[in-house]
Design a protein around this nucleic acid. Structure first.
Lengths: 112, 112
DNA sequence: GCATGATACCTCGCGTTGCAAGGTATTATT
DNA sequence: AATAATACCTTGCAACGCGAGGTATCATGC
């Protein structure tokens, strides 16, 4: 009964967060802006998306958090764990397979 | 209050259906299998997804339907309308922009 | 000194959506 | 006669994304 549900298109915010955090520790507010900037405004995930995902990823052991004060600003930095790296690989693989499949339908490739 | 909501990742079943129907008239049961086959089992949308989407697309004027009997089988064939072709172009464009944006984050492209 | 805006965190509640599950009917196969 | 395949359909749930709102701190402008 505790199976992995979720629909076939979900999990992209999770994927993006894990990928960004892989490069360096980041905090929520920073991730919101990083996603917006790196996607040139094509993707604009708000805090209502980011924070809950961060909490879930930490709960699942994919991220670890540490509160730090920088420039008089208190921030919660998240770092990728080994389990998180594994999860990132899985999600990236799924995403790649999914987009390939969709692409092959969109371009009308010859279907054996 | 009757605005267009929906989240940034949705609408892929719609896109796939419109794209397939563009090539030739198709019926629901056929679409279920076509998506499964053309995606080599990467995407398996069931009838619980396909039929409601077909009804919505027809209601919105993107598809037109006609009941036909072929080989003693009664089927509801759907054809793309001009409005549907427009909608397909829009969705395909959005999808392309979205996947490009995600890809640029995943590969860690240099961000100005 | 006070207001405004940026930074930084958080949660509640809603609407869509995808989907499994169930249901009907007809035709083909065994 | 029974089973499987074809073909249509709807109901109800869960999860996800997200807007909206709330708190607090710090910097800036007037």
């Amino acid at each position: 009964m505790a199976e992995n549900n979720s629909n076939f298109m979900s999990g992209v915010p999770e994927l993006l967060i894990l990928r960004l955090v892989r490069e360096k520790e980041m905090y929520g507010y920073e991730l919101v802006q990083a996603i917006r900037e790196r996607s040139r405004d094509a993707i604009a995930l708000g805090e209502g998306v980011i924070y809950p995902v961060l909490h879930a990823l930490e709960r699942d052991g994919a991220l670890s958090s540490s509160r730090k004060t920088v420039n008089g600003r208190s921030r919660v930095y998240y770092a990728l764990t080994a389990a998180g790296a594994q999860r990132l690989d899985d999600l990236a693989g799924n995403w790649s397979r999914l987009t390939d499949a969709i692409q092959s339908i969109l371009v009308g490739v010859q279907h054996a």
